[in-house]
């Protein structure tokens, strides 16, 4: 399989479910504040399930931003390099075939992607709505900066 060189930055989450949408909020922040550097694409992945297999394989590198309810203080950001679904922290996607399965699928297809994951800790239940809570909104600009620093 041929991949374009460069990086796809995918924000995952449900925009209607408050803090669960933090990944998408980071993408929107990037779109507003920094045009994508050459060879880089920003993608609002929503809760896209299998629709994301193609973008996951499109470029040599993938950076994903997603929310996790891992019990850490809200707003904690961890940088991870998951290989299998079992390396992936507890996600919130409503889909049984979700991002974790995509990683496995890509592995079985013989072409595992180079994934860097930024996991943002949130607390559940997150409030229904399109706004982030204060502690999560506060980390969005810093997250956007860290993601861009990955590209150097």
């Amino acid at each position: 399989m041929t991949r374009e060189s460069g990086t796809t930055i995918i924000g995952i989450g449900n925009l209607l479910m408050g803090d669960e949408g933090v990944g998408v909020h980071v993408i929107r922040h990037l779109e507003r504040t920094a045009p994508p550097p050459p060879g880089t694409e920003y993608l609002d992945g929503g809760t896209g399930g299998l629709h994301l297999l193609e973008p996951l394989q499109a470029r040599t590198r993938t950076v994903i931003i997603d929310a996790t309810a891992d019990g850490r203080p809200p707003g904690t950001v961890r940088r991870l390099t998951p290989r299998f679904s079992s390396d992936y922290p507890a996600t919130l996607t409503a889909h049984d075939i979700g991002l974790k399965d995509l990683l496995d699928a890509a592995y079985i297809l013989g072409d595992p992607p180079d994934v860097t994951l930024f996991a943002v800790s949130i607390t559940l239940p997150s409030k229904l709505g399109t706004e982030l809570s204060d502690p999560i909104a506060a980390v969005v600009p810093g997250m956007a900066e860290r993601v861009l620093n990955e590209l150097d």
Partner: peptide, 11 residues
């Protein structure tokens, strides 16, 4: 997914 929403983070 569109009829209800998941709150089980461990799946």
């Amino acid at each position: 997914a569109c009829a209800v929403h998941l709150y089980d983070p461990d799946g």
